[in-house]
Design a protein around this nucleic acid. Structure first.
Lengths: 336, 336
DNA sequence: GTGAAAGCGCTAACAC
DNA sequence: GTGTTAGCGCTTTCAC
């Protein structure tokens, strides 16, 4: 299994063709460099020797790796799976590769992952649901000296490049739906407080209440991390405390799944007794115990647009937008 | 956004410390190379100048990139998400990065992706649910001159390195479960015929029947690609054709989801009228309309062990197993 | 122990 | 046009 077979290099081809390596390089990159006859000869030899250019050497020379970093909190989450797919395929389309890193929602892990990526001399960085969203983090990111784009969760610095959906409008729309269809007492199980996405979703929630003349009651709002078990536990505790619940907006579908389990287990009916909404529209939202009403984020498009925007920055194209806000769409299912 | 700031190099440090770049390299890699005092000085300067080694240059020199390729059919599938996570984290642990590629279940795409990866001079290749499982494909893979390991779906060549579960034993166990709990007429909705995994699952299915003295009826066996809609359509057609169905083994959970939708929509009860099993135990199998009985594959472990095995090959360690078969586990839920 | 020289494979700049 | 030279940033002999 040891690599004995040396790879063919430009020099090998040059030797066989009786010209210089530089000339071969030019021919193979279509920069002229030789007579038609020599060109044909070079191509023939390259093919025969099964030549594959050493991108590492090229990268060193041109100081570009055609590799992008994609940092996500957890690549095993269905939501990120779709984003990653979009990003990876668009990158391939544009001639780039993607190195993937997981942070498990930890800021130190994230910085460490980024530092490794920087060592590999990536040309640009995509940060999905980053923890580096504080204003002070921007200095760190800028010091990296490569372009970066936030995905899904924006920075507190609203000028930082971002691709995602409008969380305020999205959650306002979904809470509106809950109100229009009959509830005025709406529990809200939001994600971690620290996240700008959570903050925006809370804004949407309060805006919807206000628009409909409902008083905001902070005791109906809870926060927890996006995890099925967490959602289950929080809602179960609320129910067992004897609080009446008639409508519940969950900050993401994952929390919605846990919440619905708790509600059903408690003996309440969905949607008859409690109506439940999520956010994201992950792939399985339609096939749950109660198909979940939710806000569909264009997950794959977020990945695609993110790469598009990042590559534009990497390649110095000027007419890119700084902030790309994609539309989300209310999907009403059995849970409401 | 243009990269004006030049990165610090060994030479910069050397200059400031008044020694050679080679000496600095040795110090920074703890290969001795200077007096204690000089060493301290070098470290101080490196830190002050925010030195980050250029891995591209190092890779070129040592002919190793510390980068591995991971080729999957579809990274957005929940199942692969878990495998990717395990692989990525284990790779990071061992000092490697992962470049991800999608093939969309197409052999030509897969070869193209691999060729790109080879150009990037990856040190090794992980093939998850590959299409290159024919004996003749081994020649192609061997010609790459880097170690590779099949994940999940094995090659026809049983000597090819592989990490996954025992599909024969797994599907035999699940069909046994169906038989033991009362069914003798068992439909089987398997995945694509071409896959070695499907072939093995069919073997398990027939073995279970034989063990229990049930005659194998090929008219109960169907094949389709792993897609919710496909599963839905096939089962719906069977039902509408008037065939009686009392138990159904699906080759993967994804097909199980589609199948259950069709069955319920047709007005039959699960598990009362039809009992349904899947395979894989994807994250959401427990939260479906009918929580799905299934065979739990150790998804994350497959990624972890796959990387472990591959890295052992890359680093020339001899005591690695060629074929690693991980245990799957029957998880009984409401659907049976 | 310490430092100088060579060279990984490629391409951009420069001479002919 | 055509080909040579130099050098990207690093490590690894090899001399001292």
């Amino acid at each position: 299994m040891s690599k004995t077979a040396k790879n063919t290099t430009l020099k090998d081809i040059a030797q066989e063709a009786g010209i210089s390596a530089a000339a071969v390089s030019k021919v193979l990159n279509n920069h002229g460099g030789a007579s038609k006859a020599t060109q044909a000869r070079v191509h023939e030899i390259a093919k025969r020797l099964n030549y594959s250019p050493n991108i590492v050497a090229k990268s060193l020379k041109v100081n570009k790796t055609k590799t992008l970093g994609l940092v996500v909190s957890d690549s095993s989450h269905s939501f990120f799976g779709a984003v990653i797919k979009g990003a990876q395929e668009e990158a391939a389309q544009l001639g780039y590769n993607i190195i993937l890193a997981n942070t498990n929602r930890d800021k130190e892990n994230e910085k460490e992952a980024i530092n490794t990526l920087i060592g590999k001399r990536i040309d640009g960085l995509l940060l999905a649901s980053s923890r580096l969203t504080q204003r002070s983090d921007i200095r760190y990111l800028d010091s990296l000296n490569i372009p970066y784009v936030f995905l899904i969760r924006r920075s507190e610095d609203k000028k930082a490049p971002f691709v995602g959906n409008d969380n305020i409008a999205g959650s306002k729309a979904i809470v509106d739906h809950l109100i229009k269809t009959g509830s005025s007492r709406i529990h809200f199980l939001n994600m971690d407080k620290a996240s700008t996405s959570s903050a925006d979703r809370l804004k949407g929630y309060t805006a919807a209440l206000k628009d409909n003349g409902i008083k905001y009651d902070p005791s109906l709002v809870y926060n927890t991390k996006p995890d099925i078990q967490e959602g289950y536990t929080v809602i179960r505790n609320i129910l067992e405390s004897g609080q009446r619940m008639e409508a519940l907006f969950c900050g993401c579908d994952i929390l919605g799944i846990g919440a619905m389990e708790a509600i059903l287990e408690y003996g309440l009916k969905i949607p008859k007794d409690v109506r439940v909404c999520g956010y994201d529209d992950i792939e399985f939202a339609a096939y749950l115990r109660r198909p979940l009403t939710t806000m569909r984020q264009p997950k794959q498009s977020i990945g695609v647009k993110g790469i598009e925007n990042l590559v534009a920055r990497v390649e110095g194209i000027d007419d890119k937008q700084n902030v790309v806000v994609l539309k989300s769409e209310l999907v009403v299912r059995e849970s409401t």
